Simulated scan of single mutants.
Amino acid sequence: MTQHPTSEERRPANRGPKAAAGNRAALVTAAREIYAVHGLDVPLSRIARRAGVGQGVLYRHFPDREAIAVAVLEENVRQIEQAAAAEGATPAGVLGVLTWHLTQSAAFIGLLHADGASGRLPAHAFARELSERVERALRGCLPEGHRLGAPDDLMLAVAMVSGAVTGPTHRERAHRALAAWRLLGVTVGPVRPFEG
Rank of each mutant, 00 (worst) to 15 (best):
W100K: 05
W100G: 01
H101R: 02
L102A: 01
T103W: 00
S105R: 05
S105K: 02
A106W: 01
A106I: 00
F108K: 02
F108A: 04
I109F: 14
I109E: 15
L111E: 01
L111C: 06
L111T: 01
L111H: 03
D115C: 10
A117Y: 14
S118M: 10
S118E: 13
G119H: 06
R120F: 13
A123Q: 10
H124N: 14
A125E: 14
A125C: 08
F126R: 12
F126A: 07
F126D: 04
F126C: 03
F126S: 06
A127M: 09
E129L: 15
L130G: 04
L130T: 05
L130Q: 15
S131E: 11
R133V: 04
V134F: 05
R136F: 02
R136T: 14
A137Y: 03
L138T: 01
L138A: 05
R139M: 07
G140R: 11
G140T: 11
G140Q: 13
G140C: 12
G140F: 06
C141Q: 08
L142V: 05
P143M: 15
P143N: 15
E144D: 13
E144N: 11
E144P: 12
G145H: 10
G145V: 07
G145F: 07
L148F: 05
L148K: 04
L148A: 07
L148N: 07
A150R: 10
A150K: 10
P151V: 02
P151L: 02
P151Y: 04
D153K: 08
L154P: 01
M155L: 07
L156Y: 10
A157P: 02
A157T: 07
V158I: 06
A159G: 12
A159H: 12
M160F: 11
V161I: 05
V161A: 00
S162D: 10
S162H: 09
S162K: 11
G163H: 07
A164M: 07
V165P: 00
V165T: 00
T166C: 03
G167N: 09
P168E: 14
T169I: 03
T169A: 05
H170Q: 10
H170W: 05
H170E: 07
H170I: 00
R171S: 12
R171M: 08
E172H: 12
E172Y: 10
R173M: 01
A174L: 04
R176G: 00
A177W: 00
A177I: 00
A177M: 00
A177G: 05
A179I: 03
A180G: 09
A180D: 06
A180C: 05
